[in-house]
Design a protein around this nucleic acid. Structure first.
Length: 493
RNA sequence: GGUGCGGUAGCCAAGUGGUUAGGCAUCGGUUUGCAAAACCGACACACGUGGGUUCAAAUCCCAUCCGCACCUCCA
């Protein structure tokens, strides 16, 4: 039996027990990208949060069917293509490819289905026909509109009142200001598909209703997306689906908070303050982004700043280094007796490691509180480090840290963090930081070997001069018992 | 104007009425040839403000101030 979870439901605005329609199975639909530009670090938050959520559900024993769409026909795509004198389909495909590269870079698990609007046209048209037949929609001059007044629960997700809504697309043949397009009559030069109302294309919201139904069936357990989609997108999806397919449309609505700039404003394409995933991944490992997202609660706004990724990378290094110390320990004594012999720091690691799975799940089962789950891991890492200072830890400590090592594996499986061997992590960090700062590896290595030579002759002044020279290049030299290591400093000067 | 979310130490931040969450920064100490990392300690009587309920409030209630988002481009 999968573990019981509690999730915040936007519909009720409460954290409630999650009960899937079919015990043990979860159908999950997440709104994907509208492919008219690169994926930025705000999109990536939604992608990573739901990626980790899928991993966690599976770890907890649920059989998950995960669908994430591409919206590849849309006003914005057409507008962008016209600006550039490019075919909209070619432009959309280019950004689909770019997204796939970013998704791979971020280490996202592949959805079970990744439907595209252009490949779902018969289902979309069929749904519109049903809505017209049932009296929830009307055709006018080659377009089809959803009649909001035909659905008296409209507004239940976003708590908007129909009378309060401003109107857009006025004078296009709508009967009421709040009505929204299901099908847009083609204008010249736009991509279009034949239909009984004439050539045209789907409105923005209908595709998700149709594609969710195609791949997951009438009622879906969880629908996710960014908070900014609550209105109008998800509100309209509910109206379309509940009038045309099934009620309820969705059991639990999950919305992630938005990335904000330090000024408090959100990051948005329209504000021109975006950082692309691609450039973030050139300078930082994907796990640093992942940790940055997951060390906050998914529903909170998340401030972006220059320091966000360096700080997250520092935190990640801390975890990797603690794990490495534990991995390096040997010994095969009976753990409880050994803990008694080695003292309170050993006993603390043993106890924290053993308690970890319970504490971790308790935190994360409660509305996916990844921040609190990770806090427990940091607590454990500190205990490991403290214990590792003991003289006998390296030769005999392995049984003491065995449970702590299992904790790192648990977090890896749940969140996709700590998935690399430590040396691979550090060499990826080095490569990316060197590239980002434009540093020359050969030059650094020459300075390092010169310093090594000075140290063998105990020429300390020369060694220190070289250390300072390297420091100015942002290279930190570590004289470890196992040999000389070096790292690229993360923080700004 | 309408609908929501939020204000927790220098900064970010979790908190599900009852024992120092966590991270980052700065400053001391241990350690180190010098450093770094790590550990220990300080910053720390933290919860926007004013009332109320309670044996007990960051948490519940009322009022109030401030910030942000959404109200047909948005993850």
């Amino acid at each position: 039996m999968p573990a019981p979870l509690r999730l915040h439901n936007t519909l009720t605005r409460k954290v409630e027990e999650f009960v899937p329609l079919v015990p043990g199975k979860v159908s999950l639909y997440v709104c994907g990208m509208t492919v008219y530009d690169h994926c930025h670090v705000g999109h990536a938050r939604a992608m990573v949060v739901f990626d980790a959520f899928v991993r966690y559900l599976r770890l907890r024993g649920y059989e998950v069917t995960f669908v994430r769409n591409f919206t590849d026909v849309d006003d914005k795509i057409i507008a962008r293509a016209n600006e550039r004198g490019e075919d909209p389909n070619v432009l959309a495909q280019r950004y689909v490819d770019a997204f796939r590269a970013d998704a791979a870079g971020l280490g996202l698990v592949a959805p079970d289905h990744e439907p595209r609007v252009t490949e779902s046209m018969p289902e979309i048209i069929a749904l519109i026909v049903t809505l017209i037949d049932k009296g929830h929609a009307y055709a006018q001059d080659g377009s089809v509109w959803f009649s909001v007044s035909s659905y008296d629960e409209y507004g239940k997700l976003s708590h908007q009142k129909v009378e309060e809504l401003r109107s857009a697309d006025e004078a296009l043949g709508k009967r009421a200001p709040a009505d929204f397009a299901l099908w847009k009559a083609a204008k010249s030069g736009e991509p279009s598909w034949p239909s009984q109302w004439g050539p045209g294309r789907p409105g923005w919201h209908i595709e998700c209703s149709a594609m969710a139904n195609m791949h997951l069936g009438g009622t879906i357990d969880i629908h996710g997306g960014g908070l900014d989609l609550v209105f109008p997108h998800h509100e309209n999806e509910i109206a379309q689906s509940e009038c045309g397919i099934a009620r309820p449309y969705v059991g639990t609505w999950m919305h992630n908070g938005l990335l904000t700039m330090t000024s408090g404003q959100k990051m948005g394409k329209s504000l021109g303050n975006v950082i692309n995933v691609h450039s973030a991944l050139e300078a930082f490992p994907a796990e640093a982004l992942r940790l940055y997202y997951l060390h906050n609660h998914y529903r909170s706004p998340l401030p972006w700043s220059e320091d966000a990724l360096p700080e997250a990378l520092g935190m990640l290094s801390r975890l990797y280094d603690a794990r490495e110390k534990a991995e390096a320990m040997a010994g095969d004594d009976e753990p409880d007796a050994l803990a008694k012999e080695l003292g309170p720091d050993a006993a603390a690691v043993l106890e924290l490691g053993r308690a970890f799975p319970t504490k971790f799940h308790q935190a994360v089962d409660h509305d996916f509180n990844t921040a609190q789950g990770l806090a427990h891991l940091f607590e454990l890492a500190r205990a490991v480090n403290r214990f590792a200072n003991h003289k006998k830890a390296k030769s005999r400590g392995r049984p003491i840290v065995e449970a702590a090592l299992a904790a790192f594996i648990l977090v890896r499986d749940a969140f996709g963090l700590m998935a690399m061997p430590t040396h691979a992590f550090h060499s990826e960090v080095k490569a990316k930081r060197l590239a980002a700062l434009g540093l020359d590896r050969a030059h650094i290595e020459a300075l390092l070997s010169e310093r090594a030579a000075a140290r063998t002759t105990k020429d300390w002044p020369r060694a220190d001069t070289l250390r300072k020279e390297l420091e100015q290049l942002r290279i930190e030299v570590l004289d470890l018992p196992t040999g000389v290591e070096w790292r690229v400093r993360l923080t700004a000067d």
